[in-house]
């Protein structure tokens, strides 16, 4: 028997209304200076990510170089926000990024399925933090969530948060496995109540990953939580965002839903890798008036 989780009172979410509202953000036309400013903001909010079974120190070093110097040909570009890797590669990334302001984020807690014991998950978090991680991206136990054992999911997040110490905790809901917006809303509320510093859509391993509608549901939860408690929580859509135009529409949505306070990489991130070069291509296009071939941008 599962124990009903007593304290949450998440509102129902109307799927049709959410999709309609999300579409409306896509009609915003972002031109000229606002486009340039937006593109730089996007670049600065990216968690440059590699989460492959075949990741090696060499691959991670290359990625870190890209993080520091996204495109040497254009002066004055911001760096990305963080580099996101598996725990066993945190030390390499930390070493490469020493002396920069770029954070090292590590997935943990039996990523991506989350199907392991709490002890093992906590040990993995400790390992990542000992190796130098500034941020931990955990996954919730979706199986437990679907059985209605919200107390377990809550306690697990709270335990991981405690294990994080000073490191910021991003809680991945894996919305593609939750099924409805009602459940996305409930999981968002639960994660924030349990102490999440960020809530994040996806691992990137499941489709659908981040979408505008699901991100809207989550940032509306953040808005309500902030209004109720005064605590600011960050948002990270991850997976499926590879084009600048879409990324800019995410920013419009954040600006019009959460406000300017969330328009920086302390409170908003994109989990992405191929997005970087599309943004760079657009920046160069804005500066020079013409698109350059992909060969001019480093592929990592």
């Amino acid at each position: 028997m599962t124990i009903p989780f007593p304290t949450l009172n998440s509102p129902p979410i109307d799927q049709v209304g959410v999709v309609q509202r999300a579409k409306r953000f896509c009609t915003r036309s972002i031109k000229n200076e606002s486009k340039m400013q937006g593109l730089k903001m996007v670049l600065n909010m990216i968690d440059l990510t590699t989460l492959e079974g075949m990741d090696t120190p060499g691959k991670v070093r290359q990625l870190c170089t890209k993080a520091k110097q996204v495109h040497a040909a254009v002066a004055g570009l911001p760096t990305v926000a963080a580099v996101c890797v598996y725990p066993n590669l945190v030390a390499i990334a930390k070493q490469e990024l020493l002396g920069t302001s770029i954070k090292v984020a590590s997935v943990a807690t039996a990523f991506p399925s989350g199907n392991s014991s709490l002890d093992i998950k906590l040990a993995e978090v400790a390992y990542a933090i000992d190796s130098g991680a500034d941020e931990i991206d955990m996954v919730i136990s979706r199986g437990r969530f679907h059985t209605g054992d919200y107390r377990y999911v809550f306690d697990e997040i709270a335990a991981v948060k405690e294990a994080c110490g000073k490191a910021r905790l991003k809680v991945i809901l894996e919305t593609g496995e939750l099924g409805t917006f009602d459940k996305v809303r409930l999981a968002s509320d639960l994660a924030m109540e349990a102490g999440a510093d960020f809530i994040k859509t996806s691992t990137g391993k499941i489709k659908p990953a981040a979408t505008l509608p699901v991100t809207l549901v989550m940032i509306e939860a953040i808005r309500d939580y902030h209004r109720r408690t005064g605590r600011q929580v960050g948002m990270k859509p991850a997976g499926g965002i590879s084009k600048s135009k879409l990324a800019l529409h995410y920013l419009v949505m954040v600006k019009e839903t959460l406000g300017n306070d969330w328009l920086n990489n302390q409170w908003f991130r994109f989990g992405a890798s191929s997005l970087v070069n599309d943004v760079l291509m657009q920046i160069v296009k804005q500066k020079t008036g013409c698109y350059q071939a992909p060969q001019y941008f480093s592929a990592d």
Binding site: K31, E33, N44, N260
Partner: peptide, 15 residues
């Protein structure tokens, strides 16, 4: 903190 562009983001005219 990383370099962060200013905190306001007005939309340019799009006539």
């Amino acid at each position: 903190m990383n370099q962060s562009p200013e905190n306001q983001w007005p939309l340019s005219p799009a006539l």
